[in-house]
Write a protein that binds this DNA or RNA. Structure first.
Length: 441
DNA sequence: TCTGGGGTCCTAGGACCC
DNA sequence: TCTGGGGTCCTAGGACCC
């Protein structure tokens, strides 16, 4: 038996905790460049704002309907997420943190009233953190996701599902007819794992509702559309194909990419940007005690600018040996960049990916002795120690207190073309002392 | 003017081997 | 005319997730 706990409109809800005046108003949170809407309050959804919709398309609603846009504040959301996950973890023996705002809990063999447990969890997270959640229970992960979808939708759109299923929904307690009715009311496109390409294909095959999909021949669909869909159908039928994974493996790739505030055409500016990305991914690589064997760089023009000549090259550079040294990674990234850059294009985006990651073996096995340095620190040139020092300095004095020259500090003072826009980011209330909430008498 | 970022898994096809 | 077959490994690209 699985539970799925999910924060409603996570990013907007986090903002509302600290700015209660936003409650009841249409609010969106914008992506890194203030480019697109990546979270919407129920009121914003009601205005017709779509997920990932460009801000410029809905900007007029700010004046006409009071739509409020906030720049993303991922530091705040990440911290609120950790707090929520810690609370949820106490409700079951095993937890899988699936994304920033949702987790699976393994309720197999748990005694007591599940629905009561679901409400207790919901109430605690609401009271302690101010975040509204929905909880779904069912016999498989896919069904638990469906249960959660029902819990949310029943709350948000009265009449869509029986109101008794709002907030906390346990599909395992429904009779066969009631369960069929829920599935009849749900489009296949709302099922976890069925996206914008597969849903129309299923529609064309005459499978429009979850009920129709559940009654389909899983093996035959699997042959036609792939093993992933086959598992999804089996899970809808009640056969678990996926388990709660409470010990996920280390990341297999680390990526940093951004769209630019304005197009970039010159190599020196790309060098600056790519260096900065490489520094960031290197830092994250060291944070997971990893090393990588290859670096990939991509730059791309904007596919939305139909009249621009398009160019979106990628280059992958194998490294002579596994490393987490910022200098080696920046050098590799810049070599790759120089190999793919062509003058005369208006680049709109760039990124650096670390590939073929490995973890320090002894570290992973937990057999490092106290004070023993990790394997990668034993390089004869002592670079790991330098990197550890750099990380410590930046931790203490702020990110980029110590940096690499090619990344340039120009962007701090001068507004480079690639600098991202962030017009209204809220304070990082819970992670920066200087930005902590001020209470007035 | 303005269109997110960071991940995972699966599949198809080519290279290579015996 | 017909031009082996089966296996592995690697990579690029696609689909999906939030």
């Amino acid at each position: 038996m699985f539970a799925l706990v999910d924060v409603n409109n996570m990013y907007v809800s986090c903002e509302r905790v600290f700015r209660p005046a936003l409650i009841g108003k249409p609010v969106v949170v914008l992506s890194n460049n203030d480019g697109a809407c990546i979270a919407r309050s129920d009121e914003a959804k009601a205005l017709g704002v779509k997920m990932a919709q460009p801000w410029f398309e809905v900007k007029h609603l700010a004046r006409s309907a009071g739509l409020i846009a906030l720049s993303a504040n991922f530091e705040l959301y990440g911290d609120m997420s950790s707090r929520m996950m810690a609370l949820a973890a106490a409700y079951a023996p095993r937890q899988e943190i699936y994304s920033i705002d949702e987790c699976f809990l393994d309720f197999e063999g748990m005694p007591g009233d599940r629905i009561a447990a679901g409400y207790a969890l919901r109430h605690q997270v609401l009271r302690w953190l101010g975040l509204p959640t929905s909880v779904g229970f069912a016999a498989t992960k896919t069904l638990a996701k469906l249960a959660n979808h029902v819990a949310k939708t029943a709350e948000r759109k009265p009449g869509s599902y029986p109101h008794a299923l709002a907030q906390v929904c346990d599909l395992a307690t429904l009779g066969p007819d009631a369960l069929d009715e829920v599935m009849r009311r749900t489009d296949v496109g709302d099922v976890w794992g069925i996206g914008r390409k597969t849903a129309p294909k299923l529609h064309d095959m005459g499978l429009r509702t979850v009920l129709e999909l559940k009654r389909a021949d899983a093996a035959r669909l699997g042959r036609q559309l792939g093993i992933v869909l086959q598992k999804t159908v089996c899970e809808l039928q009640g056969t678990p194909c996926l388990e709660v994974d409470d010990d996920p493996p280390a990341r297999q790739q680390i990526l940093c990419s951004r769209s630019f505030g304005n197009p970039v055409t010159e190599l020196p500016e790309l060098v600056e940007v790519v260096s900065g990305f490489a520094i960031r991914v290197a830092r994250r690589l060291r944070a997971q005690q990893g090393a990588c064997n290859a670096v990939q760089v991509f730059i791309a023009t904007s596919p939305f600018r139909r009249h621009d000549r398009q160019h979106a090259p990628t280059a992958t550079l194998p490294l002579p040996r596994a490393t987490a040294d910022t200098r080696a990674l920046v050098n590799a990234a810049l070599t790759a960049l120089r190999g793919i850059y062509r003058p005369g294009y208006r680049y709109a985006k760039a990124g650096v990916v670390l590939l073929d990651l490995q973890v320090d073996r002894r570290e992973r096995e937990g057999s490092l002795e106290l004070f023993e340095e990790p394997e990668v620190a034993l390089q004869p040139d002592g670079r790991r120690d330098l990197m550890a020092t750099v990380d410590a300095l930046n931790e203490r004095f702020g990110l980029d207190a110590v940096s690499i020259a090619s990344s340039s500090k120009r962007s701090r003072n001068v507004r480079s073309a690639h600098a991202s826009r962030q017009e209204s980011r809220s304070p990082r209330y819970t992670t920066r002392l200087q930005e902590v909430v001020v209470a007035r008498a």
